[in-house]
Amino acid sequence: MTSRLIYQDESMEIRVPTELEAPLHFDAIQSSMADISAWESWCSTGYSLEDSRTYLIDSYVKRQRGQEYRFCLFDLASGKIIGSIALNRIVPEYKTANIGYWIRSDFTGRSLAVTAVKAIARFAFNELGMTRLEIVAMEKNHRSCRVAEKSGAVKEGLHRNGLYFHGQPSNAWIYSLIPGDLT
């Protein structure tokens, strides 16, 4: 059984959210719509509370199957969800996965995403036996690239048409983390 809590300090914890926390999830996305939607196709003005509920139910199912591991960052003082981090695109036979993340707009600039990347990488390496994690960021998503770099990930190159965004291919920077990269 894998951990539900992967990080905790005096102000934040990173853990698996439950379906009952859909309103908190929805609130975080609504308050960060402009920032998230600039880089994520799923985030649009039509995003609803039911979408958050469905996401959290789907998260549970995919976790049980070992297909994805999604966590939320919780601010302990307010109880708010202040971000999300996930392992997806898991390829068990190659022990690889992708890391995706977003931080609530009013909590950016605090290195929370860096903390989350390091926490999920430790989880992936120590509990799941992964040997390579990738962070894929659109070419002009400088914030996401900076998070990858500050997390200790190695920039491997620009992949032409590496992502698909709003029906169009987009170049993407590829970063990797392997167990020896974490200090």
Rank of each mutant, 00 (worst) to 15 (best):
G46V: 08
D51Y: 09
E127L: 07
E21R: 03
K62A: 15
L182R: 13
L76I: 01
E40C: 02
A121C: 10
S111E: 09
P23H: 07
E40T: 14
H25G: 05
S11D: 09
K155S: 10
S111T: 11
F107V: 01
A97E: 09
G83W: 08
N141V: 01
R70G: 04
E134I: 05
G83M: 13
D51W: 07
N141R: 05
K80W: 05
P179Q: 11
Y69G: 04
T108W: 04
L182T: 06
I178R: 14
Y164E: 04
I14P: 02
H159T: 07
L128N: 05
Y47G: 05
V61I: 11
N126C: 14
I90L: 13
T2F: 10
F71K: 14
K80M: 06
I82D: 01
M130H: 12
I57K: 11
T108P: 03
A148D: 01
W173M: 15
C72V: 11
G162K: 15
D75T: 02
A172V: 05
K155W: 04
S111Y: 10
E19P: 00
K140P: 05
M33K: 15
M130I: 03
Y101I: 00
R63T: 07
G100A: 04
Q67D: 14
K80L: 10
R143A: 13
E93G: 02
C145N: 03
A34T: 08
V136F: 00
L133K: 10
D35A: 15
G83E: 01
Y7A: 09
T96S: 14
G83T: 06
Y69E: 03
T45E: 13
M33N: 07
E50F: 05
I82V: 12
S52G: 14
N161I: 04
S32C: 04
I82T: 10
S144Y: 00
A28I: 07
I57A: 15
H159K: 12
P179V: 03
T183S: 14
D9F: 06
S144Q: 00
R104D: 03
H159F: 13
E139N: 05
P17D: 06
G129C: 08
T108G: 05
W173G: 00
E19K: 10
K155A: 13
D58G: 11
W42R: 15
G83Q: 10
S105C: 14
T131A: 09
P17N: 07
N98F: 01
D75K: 03
K80G: 05
A121K: 01
Y7K: 10
N141H: 10
K155C: 11
L182V: 01
S3T: 06
N171K: 12
I120S: 00
D58Y: 02
D75S: 12
E93Y: 12
Q30S: 14
S3C: 03
L112S: 02
R4D: 13
I135F: 00
L49M: 13
